[in-house]
Computed example of a mutant assay.
Amino acid sequence: MAGVLDSVNQRTQLVGQNRLELLLFRLRGRQIYGINVFKVKEVLQCPKLSSIPNSRAVVRGVAHTRGETIPIIDLGMAIGLPGIPQEDLPNSFVIITEYNRKTQGFLVTAVDRIMNMNWEDILPPPKGTGKDIYLTAVTKIDDKLAEIIDVEKILSEVSPLREDVTEAILSKSAERVSGHLPVLVVDDSAVARRQIERCLIAIGMEVVTRNDGKQALQYLKEITADGSKAKDLLSLIISDVEMPEMDGYTLVTRIKSDPALADLFVMLHTSLSGVFNKAMVQKVGADDFMAKFSPDELAERIMEIVDQS
């Protein structure tokens, strides 16, 4: 699908403006779904798939493209919908993505278009939808509800990551992090929050969590309302980038422009592709960046940060 992706320069211009580009697609029905264009490497007509013995049914096979062998996940099946029939595969599309340091393809029925949007128009799922839904957010497009899929939840089920900190790292943590201030973790994915919280608790850190940048900024304003400095109350912030209402880039920009918050160490911790990270981090003034999710790497880096504080 030629032209579906804009250039790197065009997309990095969105950084810090609380904007995103959504790639919209469909899964065997009229419902519209979306994922952030930043995570998309390529969109192509479904290639010939080779089967994988003993794989999960949701993994329809592997595709060989651009020198890589990539697992192809039927996205509809992954969220509990009927899968695409075998005879319809040639007319389907594969969205090649990069999440959590891995490349995978998502099989979809149709790819619609790219929409440039404001994160303020991206809202959390309605209350009462439960914890087991595969959505991180919803938005209105052409007066219809579009659902933004929690890909991290899907991947945690299809290809689980190791979440535990190894004993070698834990043995270093007993003396290094005792008595330090809590860490604020900001992420709209319940799976990601759980992974990070589990990692930090394992090395002895206290954790405060918020679901998006707007909630996090409100919390920071509340704890500094008496004139306190955030740096005296928290060790650091670990923030996702993609979040409804206020993204991580905008959160960092707002933090660094507020005298009560500016000295607080902010790490961006995201599954976004590494191609753009350095320019983005520099642009918004974040103190550090780490790609999701390696519990040992995260634990070691947090210990280094709190040692220096």
Rank of each mutant, 00 (worst) to 15 (best):
V151I: 15
V151L: 14
V151R: 00
V151W: 03
E152Q: 09
E152W: 05
E152R: 01
E152D: 15
E152S: 14
K153W: 10
K153Y: 06
I154E: 00
I154S: 02
I154T: 05
I154D: 00
L155C: 08
L155T: 08
L155R: 01
S156E: 11
S156A: 15
E157A: 13
E157P: 03
E157K: 13
E157Y: 02
V158H: 00
V158L: 00
S159F: 11
S159K: 13
P160W: 01
P160S: 10
P160H: 07
P160M: 07
P160I: 06
P160G: 09
P160D: 07
L161S: 15
L161P: 11
L161F: 13
R162N: 12
R162G: 10
R162F: 00
R162W: 00
R162S: 13
R162M: 05
E163N: 14
E163S: 14
E163C: 07
E163K: 13
D164F: 04
D164W: 03
D164Y: 00
D164N: 08
V165K: 09
T166Y: 00
T166N: 07
T166H: 06
T166K: 01
T166W: 01
E167G: 12
E167I: 06
E167Y: 05
E167S: 12
E167W: 01
E167Q: 09
E167M: 03
E167A: 11
A168Q: 09
A168T: 10
A168L: 09
I169A: 04
I169K: 01
I169S: 01
I169W: 02
I169Y: 01
I169R: 01
I169H: 02
L170G: 08
L170Q: 12
L170F: 03
S171N: 14
S171T: 13
S171Q: 14
S171I: 09
K172W: 01
K172A: 05
K172D: 06
K172G: 02
K172N: 06
S173P: 08
S173C: 10
S173D: 09
S173I: 11
A174Y: 06
A174M: 08
A174F: 12
A174C: 06
A174I: 10
E175Q: 13
E175K: 14
R176W: 02
R176I: 15
R176V: 12
R176E: 13
R176G: 11
V177R: 05
V177Q: 01
V177D: 00
V177H: 01
S178M: 05
S178Y: 07
S178F: 09
G179E: 04
G179I: 03
G179M: 03
G179C: 07
G179P: 03
G179K: 04
H180F: 03
H180N: 09
H180R: 14
L181H: 12
L181M: 11
L181Q: 12
L181N: 12
P182M: 12
P182E: 11
P182F: 11
P182V: 10
P182W: 11
P182K: 10
V183Q: 04
V183H: 03
V183I: 15
V183C: 03
L184S: 08
V185C: 08
V185M: 05
V185Y: 01
V185Q: 04
V185G: 07
V185W: 04
V185R: 00
V186T: 09
V186F: 06
V186K: 10
V186D: 02
V186W: 06
V186A: 04
D187A: 12
D187R: 02
D187Y: 06
D187H: 03
D187S: 10
